[in-house]
């Protein structure tokens, strides 16, 4: 009896909190398929006909920029994994003077906030003639992701049994073989986590491309969102449809890789 009495407020408050959390997204979705007149007459509910043409209009305006973002984010991911896994391998596999110092040098970079070096980074990229290029949007964010990634990978590599590596060493495997055939295949979970952290960061980057690009050639989709427009009839629906389109790739990533996604965002948060 007592249990049933408790269950009602428990599930009731959960339902309320969940409804409030999801409400903005409900509004986003139902309003994205309305024309202006429909929004005026029926603001809260679903209104027929559903104007999916809002989506095609929005996609025409932001479609090309999604390709840019995919390219840039993937570039960041590949770069971060490459340089960080090599560094982590060095820290775990070898002993040499200054090892600890190098590790601290990399880690301490996590302390430097992005805005502090925003201006000198802009001037540098300008000097390197990388404004308005893909590489100009890949390398600086890559440097941001690398410290955290090195830390995560080093921790993970340390958990791989030393005996495996030593056995391979005895059999005459070179460093390249040990790295490619033993370390990397055993480290796929952490590589997935690092990949997701950096893909998300790449997708979400706003300030840096705002500073480092102008014009349309290499613009990422996030920057294109503020310029989506519909005509008088379509109203705000086109804009909202664009917001949804730009979110779909991350939602898909979340659905296919929920676990590394969640461990990625939580470990990414703790870097502060």
């Amino acid at each position: 009896m007592n249990r049933k009495l408790l269950a009602l407020p428990h599930y009731g408050s959960l339902a309320l909190l969940l409804a409030l959390t999801l409400f903005p997204f409900y509004m986003l979705i139902v309003s994205s398929v309305k024309y202006t007149q429909q929004a005026i007459h029926n603001f809260w509910g679903i209104s027929f006909p559903l104007h999916f043409d809002n989506y095609s209009v929005a996609f025409k305006q932001i479609g090309p920029f999604i390709g840019n973002t995919v390219l840039i984010s993937s570039g960041i991911v590949v770069g971060v994994i490459l340089i960080s896994s090599l560094a982590a391998y060095s820290f775990v596999r070898f002993n040499y003077p200054g090892k600890q110092l190098f590790f601290v040098l990399i880690l301490s970079l996590m302390m430097i906030p992005g805005y502090l070096i925003l201006i000198p980074q802009f001037l540098l990229v300008q000097k390197l003639d990388m404004l308005n290029t893909y590489q100009g949007q890949i390398f600086p964010p890559m440097a941001f992701g690398a410290a955290m990634a090195t830390f995560l990978m080093k921790t993970f590599f340390e958990g791989i049994p030393k005996s495996l590596i030593e056995a391979a060493d005895m059999e005459g495997a070179g460093e390249r073989q040990i790295f490619m055939k033993i370390i990397i295949p055993l480290s796929l979970p952490i590589i997935a986590t690092v990949a997701i952290i950096n893909f998300l960061a790449g997708w979400n980057n706003y300030i840096w491309p705002l500073v480092a690009t102008n014009g349309d050639a290499v613009k990422p989709v996030i920057l294109a969102l503020s310029t989506i427009t519909g005509n008088m009839d379509q109203g705000v629906g086109v804009k909202l449809a664009g917001y949804i389109i730009s979110s779909i790739p991350l939602l898909l990533l979340f659905v296919v890789a929920t676990k590394p996604f969640i461990s990625g965002v939580t470990s990414g948060a703790v870097k502060g």
Partner: peptide, 24 residues
């Protein structure tokens, strides 16, 4: 070998983080 594996990361970090930091 130990140092060689660190070269790529320090090229990237040196160029895009250390130098901008000191410039800032």
């Amino acid at each position: 070998k130990g140092y060689a594996f660190l070269i790529p990361i320090f090229i990237v970090l040196g160029t895009f983080k250390y130098i901008p930091f000191f410039n800032a």
